[in-house]
């Protein structure tokens, strides 16, 4: 655990993402990267939506989507949300409360990671009927974070 934290610190420092240390251009770049990752996650969620609506998405595609969501979720508290990238930086919709309530935000990120892992595991069994419940948990994890920490997009 301690080794992991140390490595994360070194990585963060190495790419210049230590909270408060970013220059304006870097902050805009982080926001752009965050948007790109979030758009990847939205594309994965769209596949899940197509599955729920019986619009042709397969269990395997839902599984691949779960992996994408988990991958992005694990970056939330490391590289995607450095301090200084709130509303006002580029096209950011991140509320400042993310950093004043970092524990809450981190818990949401952990919840989403766990939910996506669970969904990925369930898709491995290949049973379409078993997917709805873990999908609901994934969507609610996203929604809980958006409810508290995203601005300007109902």
């Amino acid at each position: 655990m301690a080794l992991g934290l140390a490595l994360a610190l070194v990585v963060a420092l190495g790419i210049g993402l230590w909270p408060g240390s970013l220059k304006a251009d870097d902050r805009a770049q982080v926001v752009a990267q965050r948007q790109a990752d979030m758009t990847r996650m939205a594309a994965a969620m769209r596949v899940i939506g197509r599955f729920l609506k019986n619009e042709g998405a397969t269990v395997a595609e839902v599984g691949a989507s779960a992996v994408v969501i988990r991958t992005v979720a694990t970056k939330m508290t490391t590289t995607l949300f450095p301090e200084g990238t709130a509303v006002g930086v580029g096209d950011s919709a991140a509320k400042p409360e993310i950093w004043s309530q970092w524990d809450v935000f981190s818990q949401y990120a952990a919840d989403l990671t766990a939910a996506a892992s669970r969904l990925s595991a369930v898709t491995g069994a290949g049973n379409p009927g078993a997917l709805r419940a873990p999908i609901v948990v994934v969507v609610r994890s996203c929604s809980a974070c958006h409810e508290s920490f995203r601005q300007g997009k109902p």
Partner: peptide, 26 residues
């Protein structure tokens, strides 16, 4: 579509893959 609207009301998932936020999430 009707399915889009129904799914949104059920869990907040939009047809473009975005998930509802703000007061509407509540």
């Amino acid at each position: 579509s009707e399915a889009d609207l129904s799914l949104f009301l059920e869990m907040g998932l939009k047809p473009n893959g975005d998930v509802v936020g703000g007061t509407m999430a509540e």
